[in-house]
Design a protein around this nucleic acid. Structure first.
Lengths: 256, 256
DNA sequence: CGCGGCGTTGACTCAACTCAATATCGGTGG
DNA sequence: CCACCGATATTGAGTTGAGTCAACGCCGCG
């Protein structure tokens, strides 16, 4: 059953990026689905890798730990992400990958990617592009943590998840899944868990959004975007997705 | 004269990444050197781009500005960096590029990169790799800003610059060029300029490092690394460069 | 000479951290 | 069925790192 759902997702997620033939090509080099429980290490730093993954279900986090053992999330991957394309060109990673919820992944052998490089250069370049969008998200996280206040950071992060999930058809504008703990959110936003708890309570009290039970509820998405000072230019959504989102939010041509 | 120096740098910087033939290939598609004064915008966000740049001299910063006009540096590019490979696959950028010091760049037409994709797939993949090392640096910046204290952040940032410049032969272990103002450092580290000033003064007072006049002086590099809780695993130095650095620092096989 | 950019310092405020206790809840074993 | 546990969420009180506002010094440059 899993397989069927997941392939649908593949199609939907990238319909605008890959043409059907390319999607077929990619699906063919993906191995069988592997399921992993929550909070498991998927990839360990500094270990040579021979495969990358396509994430079909669940969330994966990239993390780095400081000397005192405090953890920072470096990125969050959602279903439909090609996790770990970096590993293909870098050979090993400098950080760990952990499942957050239960996940399902499909491995992609690096040798197959190399073959694809030579036979389908254009498709190969599209994979590069995907990895560069991840890099753009990294840069935005730097901005978020470096310049926004705690409250704004959290709201902003929720906005990113809303848009990314929505653009894959994995969440609505008024509610979307986010299987993280408050501690995880804190480690994404670079604040302490206690402080995150208070800020999340604030956001809930003022009706901006409610986070709990692995889900975010948003009564007024636009208000959330305002609270988070959010714009999604850095996500490089395909034009149609962008227009669709703007329309759904009741936005015109102007900036958010 | 510029030309001669710059080509030498090209050779030195990537001797271990590109073989002579590849370096020749890359040099051939680079256009003539263009010089730009300090504090100029090189690339503006959201404008379609037809070329990327190879940076031969000076520093370039990627920046994003918040609603209140406060700026955050997202990345810093040093001589020998291929700036803006992201632009090749993303077509336009979500942030601005500014020269910091006076810079010299050599443009690379995207059409030439596309041609290279089809004729030299292996070399093409190496360019991808370079862009993924930049992404690894992004991730480390997230960690730095998210988890380290102000003081540690600044020391850590100096460490990164030391290692990156040293590995290109552009700086020593006890002194290296860093043509930034204190305000720039603050905007890299996600703190205010006033606070950065105090922390830099602290680091100077305790003899960890002295920053001024576009240069960082370091009496004891290892002490600086300790103060910054720095490791350079994320820079993916070629094995020889890594060994060379460890030897110069008097480190054995173990971790920093 | 005066201006502007940069660095420095002081005094005050506040956001965020720390430490600690308590609450909630699903699961588990007796 | 209930006691207990671990993980997560919540709250309080006190501390501190970092921000804010403002003034001043330095210096290169027109």
């Amino acid at each position: 059953m899993d397989g069927a759902i997941l392939d649908m997702r593949l199609d939907r997620a990238y319909r605008d990026v890959f043409d059907p033939q390319e999607a077929e090509f990619l699906a063919r080099i993906q191995g069988d689905v592997q399921v992993l429980g929550p909070r498991q290490r998927l990839v360990r730093a500094n270990v040579p890798l021979k495969q990358s993954f396509y994430l079909t279900r669940g969330f994966i986090g990239r993390t780095r730990v400081d000397r005192a053992g405090r953890r920072q999330f470096l990125a969050l991957q959602i279903p439909g992400d090609y996790v770990d394309l970096p590993a293909f060109v870098l050979h090993s990673l400098d950080h760990d990958l952990y499942s957050i919820s239960e996940i399902a992944v499909r491995p992609v052998q690096h040798t197959d990617l190399t073959a694809l490089r030579d036979s389908e250069p254009e498709l190969f370049q599209k994979l590069w592009r995907i990895s560069m969008i991840d890099a753009a998200i990294h840069r935005y996280w730097i901005y978020r943590i470096g310049r926004l206040s705690g409250r704004t950071r959290i709201a902003n992060f929720f906005c990113e998840m809303l848009v990314r999930l929505h653009s894959r058809g994995l969440g609505g504008l008024h509610a979307f899944p986010l299987p993280l703990t408050q501690t995880d959110v804190a480690e994404v936003c670079g604040i302490t868990a206690v402080h995150a708890n208070r800020l999340i309570a604030e956001l809930r009290a003022e009706g901006t959004c409610a986070f709990g039970n692995g889900e975010v509820a948003v009564s007024d998405p636009l208000a959330l975007f305002r609270a988070g000072q959010f714009t999604w230019d850095y996500l490089y959504l395909p034009a149609e997705k962008d227009a669709e989102l703007r329309a759904a939010l009741g936005l015109g041509r102007g900036r958010c």
